[in-house]
């Protein structure tokens, strides 16, 4: 029992409504979702690392060109889209709805290029004979873990693009809710953050030197 409760006579102290985390519920919920999503990605990456570490003949097929170059470009685009996203959130927060619209759309465009490059890369690998169940170079789990992890990430990016476009259009219509732009931004940054781990683990550890 708090001390303040006991000694009061006529005046009862009533603290104001407040959240200990001092943020809107929507933003909190997005952060919570991101924690869960981090655990989901971590599960996939741990599973991949576990199996790769325990395998003798893990293939390292990725050549500098095209795969690593492509990955560099994809990473560059994704990091850049994080910058545009951050600027979009800033614009929305400052009430500049047109700028928010432009930055969000630019981010969505970056994401789309990323998806195109990624899908192109997938197609190349599939042409080379890489499948979920097999691949031409060795351990069958190479294809399985590659497609699972990058696929999970790709789904996240595609969902993010859809949300970005919806939120962006709402901004243009003058119905911009800065909070919505902000939590979309959180999601987008998180997806890009995951890519920072996917690149070294899934791509760069598997380059052929």
């Amino acid at each position: 029992m708090s001390q303040s409760d006991l000694t009061m006579g006529t005046h009862l102290s009533v603290p104001e409504r407040s959240s200990p985390f001092a943020m809107p519920s929507k933003k909190l919920a997005m952060w919570l979702f991101l924690i869960a999503d981090a655990a989901t990605f971590a599960t996939c990456l741990v599973a991949y690392g576990f199996l790769r570490n325990g395998s003798l003949n893990w293939p390292t097929p990725f050549k500098f060109f095209p795969t690593v170059v492509n990955t560099m470009v994809m990473t560059f685009i994704l990091v850049t889209s994080s910058l545009t996203m951050a600027l979009g959130v800033r614009a929305a927060k400052m009430g500049d709805q047109d700028a928010a619209y432009r930055w969000t759309m630019l981010t969505a465009a970056g994401g789309s290029i990323f998806v195109l490059l990624h899908v192109h890369e997938w197609m190349d690998l599939i042409d080379e004979g890489v499948r979920l169940s097999r691949n031409p170079w060795g351990n069958a789990l190479f294809g399985a873990s590659f497609f699972t992890i990058t696929g999970l990430h790709l789904i996240h990016v595609m969902a993010g693009i859809v949300v970005l476009i919806v939120v962006g259009l709402r901004c243009r219509g003058g119905r911009c809710d800065a909070g919505d732009v902000e939590i979309t931004g959180l999601y987008w940054h998180f997806v890009n953050l995951v890519w920072m781990f996917v690149v070294p683990l899934v791509y760069l550890l598997n380059v052929s030197k």
Partner: peptide, 23 residues
């Protein structure tokens, strides 16, 4: 976080069945 770990595990299990993976 507990369910967030089980979900991908179940998906990998489904993949082992339907996609021929061997996680």
């Amino acid at each position: 976080t507990a369910f967030a770990v089980l979900m991908p595990a179940c998906i990998l299990l489904v993949l082992d069945h339907v996609a021929g993976t061997s996680f």
